[in-house]
């Protein structure tokens, strides 16, 4: 077979088995399973949709909901454009995915930065968002109430891992620097860090360099219009799940005190990574809330 044709054939085959939506130059990788009201899962910055597979969230929720998970731009198997990584850009990606898949108003289940995107989407396209479950989310628009974000325990641990192989990522959160360091790690350094980070950390590290060369590390900290005031305008129900050892407890308090329809709950034992650290508890808390919202809406319809 001609070499060019062979390449095309390989690409066609890849497109067939790997579901992707194409919007101009952007390709978003997604999966969908189950039947029922729509649930969309939004992962964290530097994560990917695999978190929802490994945590069992897809498996658990798809027994009674139609669950769509996708890789955010620049993450997992989605393409990585050089720019466009603040929450407004990502909320627009959600809108396009929602339209392209013909989803109904959806419950958004999120982790960390996925929650910023979900809340931005709730504000910009309220007709597409029935409710939001946050998991330990930090909001750039609330940075004045989280002044120590730059020195979280998570980052300090990461700094120590990198220092153990002679690399410095700095004492405050700087993702652009982190991505560059990851990209130029030697195989020996990579192995050394993986050993320290454990299995989940090793799986994360293997793809963390993908965002190097993009503006994602800086753009994810942009307020991008999701200010403190705009956050307080969100009318949809919100469950603020914050981890027992969360670095963002002030954010949790703010949300419950200022949003019109928000309640909080704590994931026992978790330290920012509840979907992975406490999967069974996290999944059960999420399912209980989704059922309440779903059944509450059904009861309202019956009453009408």
């Amino acid at each position: 077979m001609h070499e060019g044709r062979a390449r095309e054939s390989k690409q066609e085959n890849r497109n067939r088995f790997m579901p992707k939506l194409t919007f101009d130059a952007l390709k978003l990788h997604y999966q969908q399973s189950g039947e029922g009201p729509d649930v969309v899962l939004l992962h964290a910055f530097t994560g990917n949709m695999a978190v929802w597979a490994f945590s069992g969230t897809v498996e658990y929720l798809s027994r009674e909901f139609r669950v769509t998970s996708y890789d955010l731009r620049g993450h997992g198997a989605s393409s990585a454009p050089p720019h466009g990584y603040n929450s407004a850009h990502m909320a627009e990606d959600f809108r396009r995915l929602h339209d392209a898949l013909g989803l109904g108003p959806a419950f958004l289940v999120t982790h960390s930065y996925g929650g910023v995107i979900a809340m931005h989407a709730a504000l910009l396209t309220p007709e597409k968002v029935r409710g939001v479950i946050l998991s330990d989310t930090y909001f750039p628009g609330l940075r004045e109430i989280e002044p120590d974000m730059g020195q979280t325990v998570i980052w300090r641990d990461m700094q120590e891992h990198f220092q153990s192989v002679g690399e410095e990522i700095g004492g405050t959160v700087n993702f652009s620097r982190l991505f560059d360091v990851v990209r130029r790690l030697s195989p020996e350094q990579m192995q050394g860090i993986k050993k320290r980070m454990g299995a989940a950390g090793a799986r994360w590290l293997a793809q963390a360099g993908k965002l190097a060369g993009t503006t994602a590390g800086d753009e994810m900290f942009e307020v991008a219009g999701l200010t403190r005031e705009r956050l307080c305008e969100i009318q949809q129900p919100v469950l603020a799940l914050y981890d027992e050892f969360s670095p963002f407890k002030a954010t949790c308090r703010f949300l419950t005190e200022h949003l019109p329809n928000c309640r909080a709950d704590v994931v026992p034992g978790a330290k920012h990574f509840a979907p992975m650290e406490c999967s069974a508890t996290f999944n059960e808390m999420v399912r209980r809330q989704l059922r309440q919202w779903r059944d509450g809406a059904a009861q309202s319809t019956d009453a009408a």
């Binding site: 597979a53 989940a200 994360w204 293997a206």
Partner: peptide, 12 residues
Amino acid sequence: FASIDAVILGEQ
């Protein structure tokens, strides 16, 4: 393998 590779493998 990275975590996303497991998902892709499942699709393949």
